[in-house]
Amino acid sequence: MSKKHKQAGLNRRKFLKAVGIGGAAAMLPGTVRAARKGVELATLLDISKCIACGECVYACRDVNADRYPEPKKPYPTMYPTGRVKVADWSDRRDVDDRLTPYNWLFIQTSAVEYEGREYELNIPRRCMHCQNAPCANLCPFGACGTDEQGITFINDQVCMGGSKCRSVCPWNVPQRQTGVGLYRHLLPNFAGNGVMYKCDRCRARIAEGELPGCIEACPEDVQIIGPRDEIVRKAHELADSMNGFIYGENENGGTNTLYVSPVPFELLDAAADKGPGRPHLKPVADSMAEANNLTEAALVAPFAGLVAGALGIGAKLLADGGDDDE
C-alpha cells in the first residue's frame, strides 16, 4: 500500500467506534472497505427528517474550530482600494444562518405547499462536493483539490483568497476571510485577499477513520455516508418510498451530496432565503462539459498535425523554407 493510501486509509476499529456513537444508520455497509480503497463516497440527506435542531452546525464548529482563520489586524491596504473589499468575518463568528469562513454548514428552511399539504423543510447546506468540481479544476494555484474519496477541499496554506472558486462554484459556496494565508507573505497590497473556506466533509476525520462531525452528531440520522453507487441507489429507493425528489445526483455533472425531499426542489428553491452564503436549489448543468469536450479534440490535434507535417500537407501553401530554400 502506498504512503498516500496509508494516509487516506481508514482504521476500521475507529470508524466502527464512531459509527457506534453516531448510529449505525449513518454508514452504509462496505463504507469502510470502500474508503480504504479510495472509492468515491457520497452522502445522502433525507430532509424530511431534519428538525433544524442545529446539532450538525454546532458539531461542525466544534470539529473545525482549530482550523478557523485567526487574521492579524490591521489588514494590509489592498490596491486598487476602491475595487478590493476586505472580507472580515472574524468579529461575526457567531453568524450561523449562512455560510461564512467560520460557518461551513447552515440550515436553510423552506415553507411550501405541495399537493394540498403544508411543509416546512429544513435543508442542511454546505459544499456539494461535485464529482468534477470546477473550483478544483479552475483554481490557478492548485489550492483547491479533490481527493479519491470524492471530497473537494481547499488547502489553506496555498490559497490566495482570490475567490475564483466561489465565482465558478454553481452554488457560490466558498467564503473568504481577509488577513490570513500566503498572500500576506507575497504581495499583500497587490495580489490575493486572504483564504477561502468551506466544508471538506471532515477529510482529516475520515482519514483517521471517523465520521464527519455533522453526520456523527445528528440525532435524527438525517445523513448517511457510503460508496456513491450505493448512496444513489438508496436515494432512489427513498425517493420512491415517499414519491419524492432527488437533488445533487446529476447537478453540475453529479455531486457527492444527494438530497431527497418529499416536495419538488423548485418549490423549495423558490421559498428559500437565498443570496450571498445562502445557496440555491436550482438545476445546474455540467460546468465543465464544454472544456471536457475540447479535451477530446486536444487528444487528436497533435497527431493530426504530426501526420499532416510528415506528409508535407500544406507545405506549398505555407511556402515554408524547407521546400523553397533555393
Binding site: 479552475l138 479535451t295 486536444a298 501526420v307 499532416a308 524547407g322
Partner: peptide, 29 residues
Amino acid sequence: YYLTHVLHYVAAIGLMALSGYLVGRWFAG
C-alpha cells in the same frame, strides 16, 4: 473564467496541432 478557460483550451489545441505539424515536417526532411 469559463470563457477564458475555453479560449485557453482552444488556443492550446491549436498550438498542439501546430507543434505536431512542425515535428512532422522536421522529421520528414
